[in-house]
Design a binder for these strands. Sequence first.
DNA 1: ACTAACATGTAATCTGTTACATGATTGA
DNA 2: TCAATCATGTAACAGATTACATGTTAGT
Lengths: 169, 169
Amino acid sequence: MILGFLAEGSLHGYELRRKMNELYGYAREISDGSLYPAIQRLIKSGAVVQRVENGRAAKRHTLELTPEGRTDLHQRLRTASGGNVTDLGRFMVILAFLSQLPDVEEQHEVLRRRLKFLEAPASFFYEGGRPLRKAEIQDVYRQGMLTIGKAASRAEIAWIRQSLGIAAP
Amino acid sequence: MILGFLAEGSLHGYELRRKMNELYGYAREISDGSLYPAIQRLIKSGAVVQRVENGRAAKRHTLELTPEGRTDLHQRLRTASGGNVTDLGRFMVILAFLSQLPDVEEQHEVLRRRLKFLEAPASFFYEGGRPLRKAEIQDVYRQGMLTIGKAASRAEIAWIRQSLGIAAP
DNA sequence: ACTAACATGTAATCTGTTACATGATTGA
DNA sequence: TCAATCATGTAACAGATTACATGTTAGT
């Protein structure tokens, strides 16, 4: 997220935190204690440079992405896998910055990985390795989980197919 | 999750991990290094007791929920808030065990908190504190985020309203 | 004068991740 | 006999959370 937002333009930490909280805060609030150490790690790795602005009385550290930082971002987007693809919240973060990947074919490759996950038979509950279907579950809230998951999945599959230019089967 | 699964019956760690991975593994894989220390913390807090089974050659520790553990689970479900309500993945875990709450009115109160969140105007991107609508966003993938989010939200609102016995507005 | 928002950090503690470490059982 | 699965843990390291710590600016 830090690399993604900085790829759109230089920011200082406070603005960055606000944007990060808007994008992801519904899932997990970004606190000072996690943001500033994360920025320091990126500075240490050479992905970000910090310039202290003198224009204001209050010290204000403008953060700028280096060419290495941009390469790092591209690599992270290109190789998105695991939870970054299967968890909706984390995939949304990938989606928010996917346009930063210069090659459209690489963008589509990421979408295809998400599509593959969505199209695989899945449940939250299994019996002998086999995903349980709604009719096999007694609990109303667990039935609801499948109802909700199915609706979300259908909508997303339709959108991805359309984005990739694939006809609905 | 540990308290929830143990509320349905005693299990040993390995089975517990499998069930946890089925329910939540799409988002984050449960590893031994996080599960076993978590179990030890629950034993220390008195929520869980461990009985070593002698029936098998391989040592097998059956985990059982104590009455205090059950009270703990109920309290966690009853007071679910923040990310546990706003993050879909975490809310799903709440939903999976919500029937464990003895009072139906308390179950509904949790659903109402989720409904309130879903019905509030929200986006992933804001301008001057105001959520941006799809038409105001240029990036196709960010438009997709809103498309997906809206569809998922609509389906979930409909299901919760139906569960609560509220007519569609 | 006071409050909210702006602005940046550190310290102690807790938790998660990854790799290591061990051993039994079951089926090919 | 070999591999997969069952079964339980620890150790080193990385990262997150919470509280602490400080100071400015703009509006009422």
